[in-house]
Design a binder for these strands. Structure first.
Lengths: 127, 127
DNA sequence: CTAGAACTTCGAGTGCGCTCTAAGTCAAAC
DNA sequence: GTTTGACTTAGAGCGCACTCGAAGTTCTAG
């Protein structure tokens, strides 16, 4: 019940997060939200600031390649409460390692692409 | 006809590149190879060192998120010969930008994940 | 009060990139 | 020469993550 208690419509959250309204509903159906989003007039969704923060965080998990199923697992741990802190740390830690490996792969591949670009540029110079 | 003229079987290339034989055939069918791979006894594929190098490079394109269709475009430019150097530079340059953006996104998301991890660790300390 | 836009559900459809199957051919070892 | 396993093709199937459609309801502006 704070003064900042704005409840956003799905279209506003879509706007704010860059996801489509379709995708937001899909994520909720898929069990990715911590709780079902509140409703106004018992039909239209009203997102709280907490909901939006959560969507933003799970978007980062997705962006770094975490599968939907794993995001759901994580959400389930959060739902289960404080006793799951260790498990959450473990899950995020393992994901962190995967992301580091991913960054390494991409960086190495980028170096090869840069090499090829340099090669073409040199070729163009000698033309 | 150099002294290093080893021709590899598809299984050996699979081994060497980390792709499956299925995927190697799929890539060829999809027009990703520069030329159809040579055949021994007019049936089994025999990959040249050049073929393998090419597969390794296109794997780096794929790893950095270039769609199959774009890899094919690039292969077509290479096939068309020296006159396409500018186009290839253009294509690779645009991809390079996309990869940099991708790295930035991932790095920013990773920072948020690290923050969350730090938060959980702190919580564990106060327990 | 009414028109039109935005919302609802739920199931079907899409696009991508493999991945596998079946039925047959070929090659290397014995 | 025969067996065993790797290879061939064409096409079907799959998993993932959306994305869309239809049919109906609700909100908002005039």
């Amino acid at each position: 019940m704070t003064i900042t208690d704005a409840r956003l419509a799905i279209s506003e959250v879509a706007q704010a997060t860059g996801l489509s309204a379709h995708t937001l509903r899909y994520y909720e159906r898929a069990g990715l939200m911590l709780d079902p989003v509140d409703r106004a007039s018992s039909s239209h969704r009203r997102y709280s600031a907490g909901d939006v923060n959560w969507v933003e965080f799970l978007t980062k998990l997705r962006l770094t390649g975490m599968p939907i199923a794993t995001v759901r697992e994580y959400a389930e741990l959060v739902r289960r409460g404080d006793s799951t802190t260790e498990d959450r740390l473990d899950l995020l830690g393992r994901h962190r390692s995967a992301v580091l490996a991913q960054l390494d792969d991409i960086t190495k591949s980028l170096a090869a692409i840069d090499k090829k670009i340099a090669l073409y540029k040199e070729k163009a110079t000698h033309a």
